[in-house]
Structure formats: C-alpha cells, structure tokens
Design a protein around this nucleic acid. Sequence first.
DNA 1: TCTGGGGTCCTAGGACCC
DNA 2: TCTGGGGTCCTAGGACCC
Length: 422
Amino acid sequence: MWLLCDCDNFYASCERVFRPDLNGKPVVILSNNDGCIVARSKEAKALGIKMGTPLYQVKDFLEKNDVAIFSSNYTLYGDLSHRVMSLLSQCSDKFYQYSIDEGFLDMSGFESCEKILELARECRQTITRGVGIPVTLGIAPTKTLAKMASKYGKLYKGYNGVCMIDTEEKRLKALEKFPVEDVWGIGRQTFEKLNYHGIRTAKDFAELNPQWVRRMFKINGFRIWQELNGISCIDVDELPEKQSICTSRSFSDQGICKREDLEAAVANFASRCAEKLRKQHSVCKLITVFAYTSRFRTDLPSNIISATIPFSVATNDTREMIKAATGVIRHHWNPNVLYYYKKAGVILSEISSDKIIEQNLFDKVDRRKQHRLNAVIDRINKAQGYSVVKSAVQYYSKRSQLKREYMSQRYTTNLAELMKVK
DNA sequence: TCTGGGGTCCTAGGACCC
DNA sequence: TCTGGGGTCCTAGGACCC
C-alpha cells in the first residue's frame, strides 16, 4: 500500500499559521511580481477565483469580497514544507518527497490495513500539532489511486482527512465517481481526446482495452491505466539529483531595456544556478541563457535571445557561469533597436556528480583553488544571509527587481522578522 | 500599465552506422 | 508494380506535474 500526504491549500495554510485571524476567510497567494493568482484557500475557490488569473483583472473583486492577498513568500513555505516532510518521514522507513507539499510513504511493511489506518491518523495529528498545517492522507495499492483517495479525503468531511481505498468494491466505487480529467497524469490534451471518445470517468478509462490505450496514449497513458487497475508501475525517486537546474524571472513593469541591467540580471541567475548545483554536489557541461520580450505587447518590437554554451570541463564555478551568461547577452545585444526584455533566465544541463570530473589536457584553471573559493563563498553567504559575497557585475542590478507589495514576514527563518506578541 | 517559476519524461524524425 | 534490416544518437517540441 502507498500513502500520500498532501497539504491542504499549502501556501494559504502557511500564511494562516501566523495569521489565525484568517481561518475560514478567503486567502489568495500571488506569483512573482504580484502577477497572477497561484494559490487559493477553500473559501477563495468557492468565490470562483480561478488559478492563474492576473491580479489586475480581479483586484476590485478581491477587495469587495474581503479576500486576503499575499505575495509569494517562498522562504516561509520552504521552511514549513521542510518541517512537515521531516515529521512525515518519521512515519515509515521509505519516504519520498514528491513536491513542496506532497510526500509518499511506502506502507508495504505493515501487516494489516487497520494498522496502516491507525498510523495514518496518528501521523496526521503529529503534523497538525507540530507545524499547524492541515494535511489529507490518501492510502491505496497504487500511487495514482492514493492520489484519488486523498482527493476524496478533501471532498468529504466524514473521512477526517484520512481516506483509504483497500477493497475491490471501494476501488470500483471511487473510479466510478471520479472525473477522468482529475486523474493524476491526465492533462488538458489527453482529456480532450478522451472526451471525444465519450470517456468521462476514471472507471470508463480503466475499463478500456489496454492495447487501444497503449496505441492511443502511448506508454504514459498505459501506466495510468495499469495504476487505476491496481497494478503499481509509477516510480518516484528518493532524493533525485536534478537533471537540469533553472533560475528565471519576469521583470516588473515594462521590463529591462539597458544592456548592463540585463547582464546584471543574468549574472544573478547564473550565480543562483551555480549555488543550487553545488548544493547537490554536481557539475554541469552546458549553460543556456535566454531573454524574451513580452509576448503580450504586440505594439513593441519583439526579440528572443537564446544561446547554449558548452564548458570545456564540467564545472559548478560561479565566476565561469557568470562569464558565460553575461557573454551571451553582450554578444547578442543589438544597440540599434530598443527592446524591453520582460523575462530572462539561465538553465544548466548535462549535470553529473562532482566526484568524477573528466579532465581536459589544456585546462589552465586551478580547479582545487576554484573549489575552495566557492566553498568559502557559500559558507559566508549561508551564515551571513543571502548574497553577502557576490561578483561586482551583480551589483549593477537593482536591489530587487521583484514587485512584492503583499509580503508576509519570514517568521521562521529570520530573527528580524519573528512574530511579535504584545 | 499589469499576464509565474521550476521541473520531468516521452516521442518523432533526422542523420548516421554496418 | 516491385526499392533491406536493424540499429544508435541527438534534438525539438509536446505534455504533464506542482
């Protein structure tokens, strides 16, 4: 059996931990630059507020309905997620974090479903009491069915946040009432195809001829079919090393039109990427740098800068990355046209372990020295706060290009922002 | 005026090999 | 009319997830 632990409306719940006055009230969380709505509390969903709506389109409506608005506070969410996952991981030997607010437990070691249910209830209590984030647990023979169980657990109060699909009878009943578009792994495209063939519920899908499913929806669709029929075949890795690392942002207002500003921005992204890479003890061989003008502004000249540069020796060095990233911008910059760049980013790929590095006969860099310098920089930045030591080029960038008008405090990670009690 | 960020996996098709 | 068979590797793009 698999147990899925899913935090309820995670970002909204994080904000409520330190704002209990917002319990039972509508809450929304915005994307970077306060652009779109990316998370909603139950009450906000009930008001009909859709995921991904641009803020400016619904601002009046939110004010009228007394909806609490927050800029995204990833420092806070990341820390609370870490606390939930750490409590969850103590409930079973085999724990797999799936996303910021979800984790799977392998329950195959338990002798009976009653025992699993008992432990699940205990586990839920521990998390509620220890972190204050409400969670729903779904338990079933496959991960796809466990996801489904957790959705039922959220839908019906009677489950008290723990829902288990353990018998054939329950499985069939669950499938029958479940819209096929809500099945894990079925997105918009697949749904449209299924709809065309008159397939509406998860049960309709699970009863299809497997050869036809295979032909029509390839290997992924076939896996979903198997999982719905109780055959476990979707794997999750324990702590997978990322195969690509990306840091990108949209810029506020019109965007960036000066070369130095864009160079400073990509230098920041490159530096952030290098830190992420070192944190997972990896090196990479390729760096991609891109910058776009806004696709919504058809009245302005549009342009795309994008280039991928190989490193001669796989690296995780901040300065090498910055040099490559700013080089791309400098090389592709057109001084004759005024472009407003709205979004830019850096992607690292061909990632491998830093334990084995292929040497290059003509490599002139002292890798040991480079490695020690990065280690010292990481240590200082970790102890003294984000980006105390950085390259000069990064200082060209304005202190924060992000618009965050509704930011809450970093209650759990910053001494200056602790909660104040009168 | 304003429109998110960070990932994974799979497939099809081209180029190439013997 | 009819034009081999069996591979590998790479890349772009699609689809999906949270």
